[in-house]
Design a protein around this nucleic acid. Structure first.
Ligand SMILES: [Zn+2]
Ligand SMILES: [Zn+2]
Ligand SMILES: [Zn+2]
Ligand SMILES: [Zn+2]
Lengths: 131, 131
DNA sequence: CAATTGATGTAATAACATTACATTTCAATT
DNA sequence: AATTGAAATGTAATGTTATTACATCAATTG
């Protein structure tokens, strides 16, 4: 799935996120797209839903914000669980994948017959640059 | 920290959460405490802040809800990172601790000089009983 | 008692997200 | 080209979650 196949609204939202230094809330995205014709939150949320589905954007549950995927071409979706560090000072987000963690979580779930859906791993703190 | 040292509002909120089948939103807690004199969201949020601080309650970031700690007497705080499975059908929450996962996350952070604050691990899905 | 601190009450507002419904776009099929 | 069905869009209204601001009250302590 490349940018080419996106609709206008999806493309605009992804563009804003891609050029942002850090994660943005839906309403911040809306504000940045007023000049492009966006008028209502739903325009943003609908675009975000699709971008999340395509694996081009991640939602950070602990801060109610969205961030462009750091490596969308490598099929972030396929890499399994994505974990994040989130700097509470500068907003910098780092994505990573850890197979050991993933295996531990999967095995915990399997042992209890828990059918795993979406998994959230987010570390909030202070990045090296802000320490 | 035992229930004895809690203020009236804190005790009421913890009581509601402790007797609930699953996680509750702040506003649901508020509704359940109207008869006890609660009138405003802040009464709930303030009590929750303290209960979170005491380690008696956990916040589930991915569903904006709160749950009583499953083993408050064992010093959940001290056990390090708490992970959760959350059944999206019945709301059942299971708390667990995994030192391997914790070590992996800590070492990832340390390698990057990221100072770790609060860490969220939440698996949403379907529990054995709801499958 | 005066001062400080922590907790509470209340109203208002901010921030985040969804429902509902009408309309448009666009590709597939006839 | 016209039909049509699915996906996307526009807009308003509403619902849900959380915080700010300010006044008051209660317990502690010097
Ligand atoms: Zn990614
Ligand atoms: Zn930083
Ligand atoms: Zn706990
Ligand atoms: Zn269940």
């Amino acid at each position: 799935m490349t940018t080419q196949t996106l609709t206008r609204n999806q493309g605009l939202v992804l563009d804003v996120l891609s050029h942002s230094e850090g994660p943005l809330s839906a309403y911040t995205i809306l504000d940045k797209l007023r000049d492009s014709g966006f008028r209502a939150p739903l325009q943003v949320y609908r675009a975000l839903d699709k971008l999340l589905e395509f694996g081009l954007v991640h939602r950070l549950e602990s801060i109610n914000a969205f961030v462009a995927c750091a490596h969308p071409d490598e099929g972030c979706h396929a890499h399994g669980i994505t974990a994040f560090t989130i700097c509470e000072t500068c907003g910098k987000v780092t994505e990573f994948h850890d197979h050991v963690i993933e295996d531990r979580l999967k095995s915990f779930a399997k042992d209890r017959n828990f059918k795993t859906g979406k998994t959230t791993i987010e570390i909030r703190g202070t990045c090296a640059g802000c320490a």
